[in-house]
Amino acid sequence: MNILMRIRRYNPEKDNKPYWDEFRVDMEPIDRLLDALNVVKWTMDGTLTYRRSCAHGVCGSDAMRINGRNRLACKVLIRDVGSKVTIEPMLGFPVIKDLVVDMDPFFDKYKAVKPYLITHDSDPGTERLQSPAERERYDEGTKCILCGACTGSCPSVWGNPDWVGPASIVNAHRFIFDSRDQGAAERLAILGQRDGVWRCRTIFNCADACPRGIHVTDLIEQVKRAIVYNDTKGE
């Protein structure tokens, strides 16, 4: 099927401001939108710039705003976007070039919540065991691939780029509720601050945007409750 691609372009070396560019490509209905971008780049305009890597929805490189919603270009099928598709860089991030945004602030915020195992005991010398139920408790957050789709879809982030954002909270949740981890108090102290969890207004854009189907808003609410009730065991 023939589709019209409207792509938001910006080359900092040439353009004063972003503009809309249009391309017509013939694609199969079950091709992915990333395939269509590749057709444009490889056969029409080599300067079109976007991130891509695995092309199978696992690496999280090609999150972009597709018909107004943050999606991975490698997971969206041509038949699902229709004959005209609008592609923009994700909102809430500085644009580097075309669809490529600067993810450095995103990863700074990710690191700020200490997304790694914290323990105060000495090394047990063996695996740190946990029950299937304990593993299940934080399973949802482990699915995150750090693509930024949730954070870039969040109006609270758009309004305040300093806010820690949904992706960081998801990854904090993953450790806060891990039975082997002892850093919950540190993380809850960080997330209880001004730019912590409380700027979330439960808009649910994050949950809609997540390509891994993570119930992002639910996880954020769980962290809020852990702060309010000072309890990381409760549901």
């Binding site: 070396e13 780049k41 080599g46």
Partner: peptide, 12 residues
């Protein structure tokens, strides 16, 4: 040959 002659994020 390349169309993109830029120095910034030149994936081509």
């Amino acid at each position: 040959q390349m169309q993109d002659k830029g120095k910034k994020f030149n994936t081509e």
